[in-house]
């Protein structure tokens, strides 16, 4: 860049960094796919194994089911993958439909906070059940 237009000491790359597409878009896109792939087997487990315990089991049967180390670990993995995937997906939906900047940022903040809190509470609950059993 020896032409006259480029007078600044800052290189064109440095000037472009942080502008436009050079943000966290790729990481968002990639993590949505990573969690989606993890959720294929986990959702099949959830639909054919966990929902029976959720929809129909008595207290004792549900406790017994979730005290199994296999189901406890799968439940924790399912909770993390689902809520991470949900936070990523809801962010895109909010960005598409909420145009007021302050409301958009507040909504995304709320979604991330709710998903994180939901995940922590769920994992703590699974551990409580494991300790009871």
């Amino acid at each position: 860049m020896s032409d006259k237009k480029h007078k600044s000491i800052i290189s064109p790359l440095k000037a472009a960094r942080g502008m436009g597409a050079d943000k966290s878009g790729f990481h968002h896109w990639w993590m949505q796919r990573v969690t989606a792939i993890a959720l294929i087997p986990l959702t099949i487990w959830f639909m054919f194994c966990a929902v029976g315990a959720i929809a129909n089991a008595s207290y004792d049967r549900a406790l017994e089911w979730l005290s199994s180390p296999l189901h406890a670990v799968l439940m924790i993995l399912y909770v993390i993958a689902t809520l991470y995937h949900a936070a990523l997906g809801l962010k895109v939906v909010i960005e598409d439909y909420v145009h007021k900047e302050s409301l958009k940022i507040a909504s995304i903040f709320f979604v991330n906070f709710a998903c994180f809190a939901g995940a922590v509470a769920s994992i703590y609950a699974v551990l409580l059940v494991s300790l009871k059993g």
Binding site: Y59, A62, L66, L83, A86, L90, G118, S122, L127
Partner: peptide, 26 residues
């Protein structure tokens, strides 16, 4: 997708109720 995000409330409720107490689970 948005519906399922709200649906997570069901299994979070299930897990917390199960961990908390029998009354809560009932």
């Amino acid at each position: 997708g948005v519906g399922l995000a709200f649906g997570t409330g069901i299994f979070i409720w299930f897990l917390i109720a199960l961990g908390w107490s029998e009354n809560c689970f009932d």
